[in-house]
Each structure stands twice: as structure tokens, then as C-alpha cells.
Amino acid sequence: METILGLDLPTWWFLVIGGLITGYGVLDGFDLGAGSLHLFFNKEESRRLALNAIGPVWDGNEVWLVIAGGALFAGFPLVYGVVLSTFYIPFMLFLVALIFRAISIEFRSKESWKWWRKMWDISYTVSSTTVTLLLGLVLGNLIHGLPINKDHEFTGNLLTFFNPYAILIAVTTLSLFMLHGAIYLVMKTEHRLYTKLTVIVNNCSKFFILCFILTSMATLIYVPHMTERFKQFPELFAVPLLAVLTLLNIKRNIDARKYFTAFLFSCIITACLLILFAVGLYPNIVISTIDPAYSISIYAAASSVKSLKIMLLIAAIGTPMVIGYTTFLFWTFRGKVKLNEMSY
């Protein structure tokens, strides 16, 4: 098979899609985490400040998810079909929750009625938490494996998705995004809300550390196939080592109230955990629990070589543009949040 820089085209596309999903997790993760924490803020001003902290960036961050879905369809159409048909109900709930998150942000401050704002505050928190938990549930099931038969058909039911390991991954994802969001909010706020958030950040870090330890132990014990690649290539142990060191540095910087550095480390650990997921799966994308022979690898699911080459060129041109736009957006809206007549 034709290679570029020593890697074949399906592997390149596996990396591209992994990079896009990682970008989404890092960027939209703090938005979703901020939404999950929203009801912890009791005062109207605090809730408005929290909303305006993510207001300029949340919709731009979702672009990464859209691109990742398009890249999966273009690069691995078989996987796209199997995954979307398998997780049909979770993905529909995911889309509904995304819609309600968006309209909650936009509609909340359109009226001054107390019940109106409270309704959309609840909707914002519930939808953000639902999106996060569903992402974790899908991720957990892909790690654990799915009952896929030789015809690539899902033979389970809705309850199949709610296995203990997938639920643990969902809760861990929620704890990570809550920590990520809390650190972002504490960077963007001041005075009374800043003080409250310092306590929330500390509690979220403890919650995530507990989930991180439990998930690591459960993966080693109950999902042994995720460690096979690390046994074959011991140098890959640098990734989990980096994740552990990053976690320690998050806690250290939170205790020192160096929140910008802590936020950078929370971005890194999000990326590390998704890299661990990708390394454990490769070269498969969908693992069958019925028979390993029924698993879907990147080579069996890839588009034609010509299609992969053309789309890889398009990705090489488009990805820097998206990164540039995202960087410009964050630079433009840097600094502490201030409320004015244009605020949510």
C-alpha cells in the first residue's frame, strides 16, 4: 500500500480523525463542563458571567465535531454506517441535547422573567451534561467492544450500551469536562464568582482524580485488549506516563492558583486520554465482542486510495485554516469577562 512519510493512507486518516476528535474534546469540553456547572451559581450576575465566558466561542468549537463526522464518512464510510446505525438512539439524543444547549444559551436572556431564565438555566445544565455523558457512553462502548456479527450488524439492544465499563467512562468524561470548564471559568472571572470557582475547581479536580484512578484500574482488569499495543511497543508507555504527570501538574497549579497553566495541562490530559483510546484500538475502529474476526479495521473500512489521497490534501489545506480561526477567536476574546448591553 502507498505510504506518505512512512505511514499508509488509512493510518493517516485514522490520525486525522483522531486529531479532529481530540480538537473537539479539548475545545468544546470546557464549554460542556461550564454548562454542567451552571446551576452551582446562584446569583443572576454569576450565571450571566459564566454564560458570557463561553458565549463567543462555544458555537465555533462545535465546528470540530462537524468536520470529524465528515472526515469519518469520507475516510471510513463502512465505520460511519456501522457506528451511526448502532448508536442511532444515543446519537439522536445527542443531537437533541446539542440543540437545547444552543437555544438555552441564546434564549435565556431574551426575557427578564425569573421563571423563564430558570427554565433555560436548567435546560442548559441538563443538555450539557447529557451531551457529555452520551459522548462518554459511546467512547466507553467502542473501547469495550460491541456485539457486531459477520455482516457488521449490531445484535444487541439499548441496554447493551449501559454496561458498567461504559457508564464509568461516561462519568469520567463528565468529571474531566467539569474540571476543564471550571478552570476555564476561573480564568475568565473575578471578584465573588472567582472566589466561588476556586472552591469548585478544587472539588472538580478531586472528582476527576478519583475517576481517573478507577477507570485506569478497570481498563487494565476488564479491557485487556487496550494494552496489547503498549506491550508490542513499550515506547508508547510515554503516553500514559505523560497523562499521570499532567494530572499531577494540574493539581499542583490549581493549588498555586496558576489557572492558565492548569488549563493548558487540562487540555493536554484530554488529548492524552484520547490518544490512549486511539492507540488501544488501532488498527481497529469497531471491536466485535462476538468474534475478533468480525471487528472492523481501518484497512477493511477505508475508502479507495485515490479518494484518501485527494481528501488528505484537502484536510492538509483546511485544518490549518480552522486552527487559525480558532486561535484568532480566542485571542480576540481573551481576558476577564465584563457584562454590557451586548452580553447574554
Rank of each mutant, 00 (worst) to 15 (best):
S175R: 10
V82H: 05
T219P: 07
K231Y: 14
M226S: 13
T160P: 04
V322L: 11
S205A: 15
L158F: 07
G23V: 08
L247C: 12
T155Q: 08
N141V: 08
W116T: 03
G140M: 12
I296K: 02
V57P: 05
L135S: 14
F30N: 05
P234C: 08
A53H: 08
G156K: 01
Y194E: 13
Y259V: 01
G70D: 03
P283G: 06
V286C: 06
L274K: 12
I269D: 08
L7Y: 13
T319D: 06
L159V: 01
A316K: 04
V337F: 08
T270V: 11
V138D: 02
L134H: 06
M321F: 15
A243T: 12
L27Y: 10
F40S: 13
N203Y: 13
Y88G: 03
I183D: 06
V66Y: 05
A293H: 01
D121S: 15
T289D: 02
N61L: 02
Y299K: 09
D255R: 06
K338Q: 14
S36L: 08
Y194S: 06
N149S: 00
P283Q: 09
N203L: 13
K118D: 12
L281A: 13
F260A: 11
I269H: 06
Y88D: 00
T132W: 05
I67D: 02
V337M: 06
L241S: 09
Y24F: 15
R229T: 15
T129I: 07
I200S: 08
D121I: 01
Y184T: 08
L308D: 04
V131T: 11
T198C: 03
S175E: 12
R252K: 11
I323P: 02
L242G: 02
K110Y: 01
K43D: 15
V83L: 14
L37V: 07
A302Y: 05
L146W: 00
L274D: 11
E111V: 08
R334L: 09
L133C: 03
Y299L: 11
L214R: 07
I317G: 04
R252G: 01
Y344D: 12
A218K: 09
L339C: 00
T11R: 14
E341F: 07
